[in-house]
């Protein structure tokens, strides 16, 4: 690491440099905040919406609509399909934007409650279904999960427009 008193900037120059760096960072952040394509946002929403009924069917104390093995097969197929589409969407996204895919672009105050709340909602609904036998819990969690997914996609779109 070199130091050289002769080239050290004045406070005004340092302030201007920091301002320029903020501009570069904002411009780069706009690229990183590029939202998923609408088709993948739809896939993600459908996958989230499918989790409560499928997981509920798998763990129901008595058979619900389908045999448990059929629910397990649906879950495995849906997850494999989702992961394959995620890998494809991520690769396409990277090619389109030219920057690394980052999942920490949205503010933590939004993502942290989601990271805790969404799994709690999806699993909690399954637990409530097992306890009460009421499938309404599953469908309610499905609907809320889908709404949250759509809301986050819209948040990304807004953030991208705002920072672009």
């Amino acid at each position: 690491m070199e130091t050289d008193e002769a080239i050290r900037p004045t406070p005004q120059q340092a302030r201007a440099t920091l301002a320029e760096l903020e501009r570069v960072q904002a411009s780069t952040a706009a690229l990183s905040a590029t939202p998923w394509p609408r088709w993948f946002a739809t896939v993600l929403t459908l996958y989230i919406a499918a989790i409560p009924p499928v997981y509920g069917g798998m763990t129901a104390s008595t058979q619900w609509l389908l045999p448990k093995s059929a629910w397990s097969t649906v879950l495995v197929l849906a997850t494999a399909g989702y992961l394959a589409l995620f890998a494809f969407a991520a690769a396409t996204w990277r090619k389109k934007t030219g920057v690394a895919l980052r999942l920490d672009v949205l503010p933590k105050r939004a993502t942290l409650p989601l990271a805790i709340g969404l799994p709690a909602l999806l699993i909690g609904a399954v637990v409530a279904f097992r306890s009460t036998g009421q499938p309404a819990w599953l469908f309610a969690a499905s609907g809320i999960g889908a709404a949250v997914s759509i809301a986050f996609h819209r948040a990304f779109v807004r953030l991208h427009r705002k920072t672009a």
Partner: peptide
Amino acid sequence: RLRICALLDTAGEAEFAV
């Protein structure tokens, strides 16, 4: 060089053309 570092610090990784 400072702008390159700022960009890469924000992006994580970026293509040369970008």
